[in-house]
């Protein structure tokens, strides 16, 4: 019977967890505490992102969709389909051929773009998000203000992948409205 007792006790002892080396006291006093070598490679320059803004004028002037506007099925879907005409407004002139305006995204220096109705669009980079499966995306803010400082759209924060559009619509313009098609590009 005693042998069984000893065998059982031995099993208990063997099954008792032994403190791991990780719990042992760390390096001896005086041992060199050389910090790990840092990667001396310079970080690559941060990629420059832009917000590409395409200003569309929506109206019911029976002119159809401006052929300079790239294929946008959204314009044929409600509520945009309530307007039968979409004209690409070219503002500012340097990008008149495409009708797109690229506004650089910067954290420190918000950039502005004057809209055809006199209001001012301002964009500011908030954060460049980590890549996910080669998809680049950023967080940025946008606001639309009246020339006299009155806010139209005080704040809009968007997380957007590169080349993924979204639309800010509803501003009155002439007999219709403006639709800003915005897209982050590099």
């Amino acid at each position: 019977m005693r042998s069984a007792l000893f065998a059982l006790l031995a099993a208990f002892v063997l099954s008792t967890p032994v403190p791991s080396r990780a719990q042992a006291p760390s390096a001896k006093p005086g041992a060199s505490a050389t910090p790990p070598k840092k990667d001396v490679k310079a970080e690559p320059a941060q990629a420059q992102f832009f917000v590409e803004v395409m200003v569309l004028y929506a109206s019911n002037s029976k002119k159809g969709i401006d052929p300079r506007i790239p294929n946008m099925p959204e314009l044929k879907r409600p509520p945009f389909s309530a307007y039968d005409s979409y004209e690409l407004l070219t503002e500012p002139p340097p990008l008149a051929t495409t009708g797109k305006t690229r506004v650089p995204l910067s954290k420190e220096d918000p950039k502005t773009l004057k809209l055809p109705n006199g209001r001012v669009l301002q964009v500011k980079l908030l954060e460049i998000l980590p890549k996910q499966k080669d998809r680049e995306s950023v967080r940025f803010s946008a606001s639309i203000n009246e020339p006299r400082g009155k806010d139209f759209l005080p704040l809009l924060e968007v997380k957007a992948g590169v080349e993924q559009p979204f639309i800010v619509a509803g501003q009155s313009y002439k007999t219709g409205m403006l639709a800003l098609v915005m897209r982050v590009v590099k």
Binding site: P73, E74, R77, S141, E157, K159, F166, V168, A169, G170
Partner: peptide, 30 residues
């Protein structure tokens, strides 16, 4: 694209998506 924060100020507005096939386009409408 996700609209994270919108302050419409004194105006009314809405956020919705326009579906097109498998994709969709967010819209902020003031």
């Amino acid at each position: 694209v996700s609209i994270e924060t919108v302050d419409f100020g004194v105006r009314e507005g809405t956020i919705f998506v326009v579906q097109e096939g498998e994709g969709s386009t967010p819209v902020v409408w003031l």
